[in-house]
Simulated assay, not measured.
Amino acid sequence: MENPITQLEQLTLTNASKSFLRETAKWAKFLSIIGFIGIGLLLIGSFFIGSLYENLPQTAGLPFNLGIFMTIFYIIIALIYFFPVYYLFQFSKKMKMALLTKNDDTLADAFEVLKSHYKFLGVFTIIIISIYLLIFIVGILGFAFS
């Protein structure tokens, strides 16, 4: 009788496949830890960048406080960055557990979290490209009508 993790309907995980997944989980954990450190630095830096922008002389003519705006902007970037990093960390944890316990459900959960990671990155990429396209169109129209 085969182990549940080695026979997935008609897909077999060989020892090489398990080794690759184990190594992938290690790299995912490393990258997620670096990501969490980056998020922490972004949050800490958000307060310093705010005070830096408050003291700049060229911001005196603005109708709003640029320092508070930059602080909020950095916090929002950190929140957006949190989700793919968290998904990557969860994938790492669940993949290591699945390979250790040979549990099909845990393996499926690990791949589900990895799917969520890539889905988030894909949707975010589409949003960013759309914003760039909109800026490009507005720039072209602004140049044409000036």
Rank of each mutant, 00 (worst) to 15 (best):
G61Y: 04
L141A: 09
I77H: 05
L133H: 07
G45V: 02
N15D: 14
F36T: 09
A78R: 08
G142I: 05
K96V: 06
A60F: 07
F120M: 01
T71G: 13
F136H: 01
A98S: 10
I72G: 13
E112C: 15
F89Q: 05
P57D: 01
P57S: 03
L62R: 03
Y87S: 01
L99R: 10
I127T: 05
I76S: 07
F143M: 11
L141S: 10
L43Y: 03
K93P: 04
A25S: 12
G38F: 04
M1Q: 15
A78C: 11
K29C: 05
I44M: 06
S17D: 14
Y118E: 02
A108P: 09
M70H: 12
L100K: 15
D105R: 12
L56G: 07
V85K: 04
G38W: 02
K18A: 05
P4K: 00
S19E: 13
G50W: 03
I80W: 10
K94Q: 08
F73R: 12
K94M: 05
F73Q: 11
L99C: 11
T24E: 10
G35I: 00
S32F: 03
G40T: 00
A28M: 14
F30E: 07
I72F: 12
E9N: 09
L141T: 09
Y53E: 00
L21T: 06
S92A: 02
G61L: 06
L56F: 12
K102E: 06
I68G: 15
F89K: 06
N15K: 12
P57L: 00
I72W: 08
K93F: 04
N15A: 12
F30W: 12
T71N: 14
P57A: 01
S92M: 00
T125V: 10
K115N: 11
F20A: 14
A144E: 04
S92N: 01
P4G: 01
L99Y: 12
A98F: 08
M97V: 13
Y87N: 03
G35A: 00
I75D: 04
T6Q: 08
N103P: 12
F91N: 01
I77F: 05
R22F: 08
I5P: 01
V113H: 15
K18I: 03
S146W: 13
L107M: 12
F124R: 10
I34A: 14
A25M: 07
I72T: 13
I128V: 10
I128H: 03
F89V: 01
G142R: 06
A144L: 08
A25F: 08
G139S: 08
F73D: 10
I44W: 04
F143V: 11
S130I: 06
P57Q: 01
M1V: 15
L56R: 11
L134G: 15
L141E: 06
I127M: 02
K29Q: 06
L52S: 14
K26R: 13
N103K: 09
I39P: 03
I49G: 14
K18N: 06
I135F: 15
A98P: 09
G142P: 05
I128Q: 06
F47T: 10
F91T: 02
I129C: 12
L43V: 04
F69G: 14
L99I: 09
S46K: 02
Y53D: 00
E23P: 14
I137P: 09
S46R: 02
E23K: 14
K102T: 03
M1T: 15
K115D: 07
N65K: 02
Y81H: 11
K18V: 03
S17E: 08
D105F: 05
Y87W: 06
F143R: 14
L31W: 04
E112V: 15
